[in-house]
Every structure is written in C-alpha cells, then in structure tokens.
Simulated assay, not measured.
Amino acid sequence: MINHINKKSLDILASTINQHVDNIFSQKLFGFTPDRSQKKLDDNNDVVIYIQIQDSYIEIVNDYIETEDYDEYPNFEIKRCIRMSEDTDYHQIVSNNIHGIIEQISIVNDEFTTFYSDEINSIDIAIKITISGHDYYIIAWDAIQGNLSFIDKSIICKEDFWVIRSQISEFWTNKDIDLRYFYRKEIPITDRINECI
C-alpha cells in the first residue's frame, strides 16, 4: 500500500478533533477572484490550506512525490505552525470564513479497488472534515499536480457550481453529488492511524 499521508501527519490531524476552528484559510495564486462558481477546479486551486486553531495553524500541502513504481502521486504533508505564509507577488491568503468544532475527520481513502480487477490503484486522496455539522473536503488530485482543492460540500451542490461538479465527475468517476467514490471508502482518522501501527 502506498501511504499518501504519513502517521505523523495523521496524528496532527487527529489532535484537532473536538477543537474549535477559528477559520480556514487558502493560499491561492494572486490572480484568484472570489466568484468561483463558473471556474474550473484548476482555476480554484489552493497551494496551501491553513486551519486556524487557537494560537496556531495546521498547514496542509500536497507534496507531490515521484517513485520508481509510481511515476508521481499526490502526498499530504501536514504540520503545526505558529503563522501563515505572507502574501507575495504570486500568492495571497484568502479567508474561507469557517468557524466551529471539528467533529470528525476521515480520509477519503488513498487506495481503492478498480472496477475491472482486484488490483489496488492509487489515484488521489482527500481529507474530509466535519465542522459543526458541515462537510469540507481537502482534495489532493492526481490529475492536477501539486495543488489542493478546498471544497465546501454545501456550496458545491448549488446550481451555479455545475462547472466544478462536472470536472469533479471527470476526475472522480462513479461519483455522486455527495462526493463519495462508489468503489472507495471513507475511513475515520482513528481507524486510519491504527492501520499504520
């Protein structure tokens, strides 16, 4: 099995359960505009996601990796830090205005069985975070190298967001609007940590 997220990163995420989120920020390319509804995923990509908890931040990046067996694949790197990166000529920090208690974190699994065989294929991986009853996905795409997509499930289901939904369908086939892979499972983070032991 290829681990797209290591145990240290999982432990950092797990430590945030039942914590209060003050906000979630995205580091985006400087040309980003807030009207995301008619744009494709590549135009909405996030370079870094920051989850603000008390006086620190959980920093999430897609540290794309190349190996001998797999040419390249997405890989979550997660660390705790005391500040976010500053705006530059190329990137800006955008507030997602999300607050509440982290109730659950699941890994939208980094392995799945194909329709055609029992072979395990690694494609992309997502972190699903439930905050005060709302589901958010941080997706590291295999098809969009090195970046992330932060998706608010309640917004992505709105009528105006059909462009992004269509592209999600291209990347995640056999997927319903609930953003769950038909042949893929969501694993609570505590179960995923136990797999690493």
Rank of each mutant, 00 (worst) to 15 (best):
M1Y: 03
I2A: 00
N6Q: 13
K8P: 00
S9P: 09
I24K: 00
F25C: 03
Q27E: 15
F32T: 00
P34G: 04
R36K: 11
Q38I: 13
Q38V: 12
K40D: 08
D43T: 09
D43V: 03
I49A: 04
Y50D: 10
I51N: 07
D63R: 11
E68M: 07
Y70D: 09
D71Y: 14
E72K: 07
Y73W: 07
Y73N: 03
F76L: 12
E77L: 07
R80N: 14
M84H: 03
H91P: 00
I93C: 05
V94D: 05
V94E: 08
N97P: 00
G100W: 04
I102S: 05
E103V: 02
S106V: 01
V108T: 08
F112K: 09
T113D: 00
F115L: 12
Y116K: 10
E119L: 08
E119A: 10
E119T: 11
I120Y: 05
I120D: 01
N121E: 13
I123Q: 12
T130D: 13
I131H: 01
G133E: 11
Y136V: 01
Y137K: 05
I144L: 14
N147V: 15
I155F: 04
I156Q: 06
D160H: 08
F161C: 14
W162H: 04
S169N: 13
T173M: 14
K175Q: 12
D176M: 01
I177L: 04
D178F: 08
D178P: 00
L179R: 03
R180V: 10
Y181M: 11
Y181N: 12
I187D: 10
T190W: 03
T190S: 10
T190P: 00
E195H: 01
